[in-house]
Design a protein around this nucleic acid. Structure first.
Length: 318
DNA sequence: CTCCAAATCTTGGTGCACCG
DNA sequence: CGGTGCACCAAGATTTGGAG
């Protein structure tokens, strides 16, 4: 108690204090009410998302799709037979604005075909809805004609690989997400029936505008794994423009771990063969490998032009 | 359409001689 | 030495042929 302050009579002092507290309490109450309303709004929003009104968009005819970012990573790699690695929280090669930690067996371009075809089947459906398919039809859909146990065993293994793959994706803005490529699977071998459901979170990637549409009619004709990877990559960039990229980056992103010179210069495989194949199907044209001065060393670069209407070109050629 | 077994193919990776 | 062209390697994936 400080005697220097002029003490008001106890009653009026208490009265003033009471009024002050009441006002504070009222203000708090208002804040709480306002906050609870906001919480309700948020809950409603979350609930509506929880109900998964999200839909995978309808793709153009004959097309499947991949998010742009995914096409610039080694999530699906161009690897040789028998070179599949087992990853554990492996950071996949990608551009710096996007990181993926990957756990599971390394996926190759044939697995990519399976995933893309699953997306095709799931398009225009509610996210996470169950897709039903017959093995032979599915294989036909990805351009595999040979039947037999080996092929079916391969498809089953591929689906398992996709289901086992776990991705922790984070943008440079700090937004993160854990997804599986396939969320649910069921099968009945006697009836030759299979069901699978994609991870609804994947659909979020397809809600955004940056989607690479991949022409499956063209893709089925592509012979080389690297061609398929490059088709993804090329379709992840704007059509009607030239694209320039260092060959070293392309090599890393496509999952090749050999020598850059082999990747760039080999006459019977590698980049040159893949680019030539893509050009013959009208995906790209006017490609060129060139050198760019980069400090003391020269950097191997590649450029190409991607026409607007791949579909028309491919129809002309067929 | 499904299954089986064997033959063949694919493709990243490696070693090496050669050349300036 | 540094870069190049080329042959060869591994090892499963894919094809093939045939039968149920």
């Amino acid at each position: 108690m400080n005697k220097d302050t002029a003490p008001r009579p106890a009653s009026s002092r208490l009265k003033a204090l009471l009024q002050k507290r009441e006002a504070e309490a009222k203000a708090r109450q208002e804040v709480v009410e306002k906050a609870s309303e906001e919480v309700k709004d948020i809950q409603a929003e979350v609930a509506s998302q929880g109900a998964l009104n999200l839909q995978l968009p309808l793709f153009p005819e004959y097309a499947s799709a991949m998010p742009h970012h995914w096409t610039r990573t080694t999530l699906f790699a161009s690897i040789a037979r028998g070179k599949r690695k087992l990853h554990h929280r492996q950071q996949l090669a990608s551009r710096t604005d996007f990181t993926i930690l990957y756990t599971g067996q390394q996926l190759d371009m044939a697995d990519n075909d399976v995933f893309l075809h699953a997306l095709q089947l799931a398009q225009n459906q509610d996210a996470g809805q169950v897709i039903h398919f017959i093995r032979s039809k599915f294989l036909e859909g990805i351009g595999r004609t040979a039947s037999g146990q080996n092929t079916y065993a391969w498809l089953e293994n591929s689906l398992r690989r996709l289901a086992e793959a776990t991705l922790f994706i984070e943008s440079d803005q700090g937004q993160g997400l854990m997804v599986r490529l396939i969320k649910d699977m069921a099968w009945n071998k006697k009836q030759d029936e299979y069901w699978l459901a994609l991870d609804p979170h994947i659909v979020k990637f397809f809600q955004q505008s940056q989607i690479a549409y991949i022409d499956f009619e063209v893709r089925k004709k592509l012979k080389y794994a690297l061609s398929k990877w490059l088709q993804n990559y090329a379709c992840g960039h704007r059509a009607g423009e030239h694209h320039f990229v260092s060959i070293e980056n392309l090599m890393h992103w496509s999952g090749s771990t050999g020598r850059v010179r082999d990747f760039a210069e080999h006459k019977e495989r590698g980049l040159r063969v893949a680019l030539a194949e893509l050009e013959s199907h009208g995906v790209i044209r006017d490609w060129e490998i060139y050198e760019r001065p980069n400090g003391r060393k020269k950097q191997l670069m590649v450029k190409w032009f991607r026409p607007q209407k791949v579909k028309e070109l491919s129809q002309e050629s067929s």
